[in-house]
């Protein structure tokens, strides 16, 4: 096996740009058009809306920075943003810790029934989002599965009320929701690692732990970061879980945005908050791209 740098130029192959050939250029047009319609245009419209202002029951066309200034003036909004950040960070970290062993064992240790296990882990995605959230209410509630079991076993006399309607419940449920999104890229990254690399590490005297630390973990970092990024973005913008399970102190930025659109009819302020959230997600995406990319090819 040789690394890319060691290969002679004629084996590297000529690197071609996406638009080198007219045919590639033409084939890219529908994709660009599609991206423009479903992703870029809504973002631009949201950005424009964030600079407009609510006047009575109408929205003025005059562009202003007032919505952004209002957000900065309200310390509670900044605090909620930081709380959202913290909960999203906890949930995505927990999702990584929960998904990594699953992805590792299914992709590398299990031979038979691998696809069945893969499907079982992503099966929750086929169930309604709201149903999955309500299920957690049934698990964590005063008369829920955990409390009922502990009480039946005589371990507690009163239900543990800290399990539900607080930030803990939000973080746990967000973790659960994020697991399939973390698992898929991790599984893909782990599955792609050539067996010869691991064999080579073993031949050179590395034990299982050292092989994992020095070979497997570095090679699955792109999958790890992609999973983390997906979990973080999903968690950061969520408003249904905090609303359903967060209690009085579980409000996240998504809830404020929802309130501005759904209750206050202040779409410009809601759009400004939404754009802030979008910008944070975009920065995270850029950072992950920068640190998560691994260039090069492996030749056997």
């Amino acid at each position: 096996m040789k690394s890319m740098k060691e290969l002679p130029n004629n084996k590297r192959g000529k690197k071609r740009g996406v638009f080198d050939k007219p045919r590639s250029y033409i084939m890219g047009i529908p994709i660009i058009f599609w991206l423009l319609i479903i992703i870029i245009t809504p973002v631009i419209l949201m950005l424009i809306m964030s600079f407009r202002q609510k006047v009575g029951y109408d929205i003025s066309n005059i562009l202003t920075l007032s919505n952004y200034l209002e957000i900065l003036k309200k310390p509670s909004y900044v605090k909620i943003l930081l709380r959202s950040f913290r909960i999203a960070l906890i949930a995505s970290t927990l999702a990584i810790f929960a998904s990594y062993p699953l992805a590792y064992y299914i992709s590398r240790k299990i031979r038979k029934g691998r696809h069945l296990l893969f499907m079982l882990i992503i099966a929750p995605l086929w169930i309604s989002y709201l149903v999955r959230i309500i299920a957690w209410r049934a698990i964590l509630g005063n008369k829920g599965l955990i409390n009922s079991t502990l009480m039946a076993l005589g371990l507690i006399k009163e239900p543990l009320s800290f399990l539900l309607y607080n930030q803990f419940a939000v973080a746990i449920t967000l973790t659960y929701i994020s697991i399939p999104f973390v698992f898929i890229p991790l599984y893909t990254a782990l599955e792609k690692i050539p067996v010869n690399l691991i064999d080579a590490a073993r031949d050179l005297g590395a034990n299982e732990f050292h092989t994992f630390i020095n070979v497997i973990l570095p090679l699955c970092i792109p999958g790890l970061l992609t999973g983390f990024m997906l979990a973080f973005i999903i968690s950061l913008g969520d408003y249904i879980i905090p609303m359903q399970l967060g209690g009085t102190g579980g409000m996240m930025l998504g809830n404020i945005i929802w309130s501005q659109f759904g209750f206050a009819f202040n779409w410009p302020l809601g759009a400004a908050l939404g754009f802030i959230l979008f910008s944070i997600a975009a920065v995270i995406l850029a950072i992950t791209q920068k640190f998560g990319s691994r260039e090069g090819m492996l030749y056997e």
Partner: peptide, 9 residues
Amino acid sequence: LEIKAKLGF
């Protein structure tokens, strides 16, 4: 909204 936003800190 402000009252709710102050809760939980």
